[in-house]
Design a protein around this nucleic acid. Structure first.
Lengths: 161, 161
DNA sequence: CTATATATTTCAGCTCGCTTAACTATTTAA
DNA sequence: TTAAATAGTTAAGCGAGCTGAAATATATAG
């Protein structure tokens, strides 16, 4: 076990602070919008990857296709998603966000991150510039990292032996 | 509505990337440990503020004291918390983590942030140093911000008029 | 002392999200 | 063409988590 890297420790502090804030805002919005965390997760995934099949979404969320189907049914009833037949393979369903679904999702994200404006206002121009550079590096590296892990997901994340 | 501040945009990107990663790891651990998000949230809050009353915890979580009481009962049964009478006011219960509760919480946090080691490994010494400085500033400002908001919470967050 | 306020628990009843199992429809392989 | 695989839905049943209302115990105000 490695000793505490000050870099990692700082990163942990920041993630703890930012996640607590973001989650708090987000849960507040989710509650008043009548949507659950799971439902937002589904909307988010559908938005991110474009169209998705029922089973794929279930795998992403870590649930059975039956559970995914039931959740999607609720989202259809709320007019947040559209579920249509894939013309190339009529067994699969194409799932996309409706206009309303996109709006709800966007508003949730905005609610989650609204405090960032206040944070920005409390920083000087130079501080902001320096932080922007640092975070840009982080985002880039983390994105590459993500792809690396995705390749190994069979081994380490989804199904350990 | 302000135009997109590149600082805020970068911050949003980073939070999206880091939250998606952290939440994914965390949900994975939560699932295999048999605890729900809400339960972890409760453990986290109890850990953060030391001891807490039932109603206080419910208010923090945004639920009635009845709901909080029921959740705490489940946590007691799992031996994650201790619930005892407050000697100064025997109506209220003191709620603290057990050793097991602390361990489970710490492991959850570790699972959530395990990917940071990989991220650290992908950065040079200079990059890490620069990012550490930037994040230290962010953490400090965000913490101050938090207190500022706490003072206004009656107005803007907990109970809007 | 009595009335009221506060802290917590219990209960009935509800929704959500989950599972397994059974079923339908469609595609693909032999 | 028939058999097997795949995608999705449906149904029954479970536990978590929530609410409102009622009950209990304690503290505090008059």
């Amino acid at each position: 076990m490695p000793l505490a890297d000050p870099f990692v420790a700082t990163l942990q502090s920041w993630i703890e602070v930012s996640m607590r804030r973001s989650m708090r805002n987000f849960l507040h919005y989710a509650r008043e919008s009548g949507l659950s965390m799971s439902q937002f997760g589904a909307l988010f995934h559908i938005h991110r990857i474009g169209s998705s099949g029922v089973t794929d979404l279930g795998e992403y969320l870590g649930v059975t296709s039956a559970a995914a189907s039931q959740m999607l049914e609720r989202l259809v009833q709320q007019e947040l998603i559209l579920r249509s037949e894939d013309p190339h393979d009529r067994r699969v369903k194409q799932i996309v966000l409706t206009e309303k679904g996109s709006q709800v999702l966007a508003e949730g994200i905005r609610a989650r991150q609204g405090w960032l404006d206040d944070l920005a206002a409390s920083l000087s121009f130079d501080e902001k510039q320096q932080i922007t550079m640092a975070l840009t590096t982080l985002v880039e590296k983390a994105t590459h990292l993500k792809q690396a892990v995705k390749q190994n997901s069979n081994l380490f994340i989804e199904e350990h032996p």
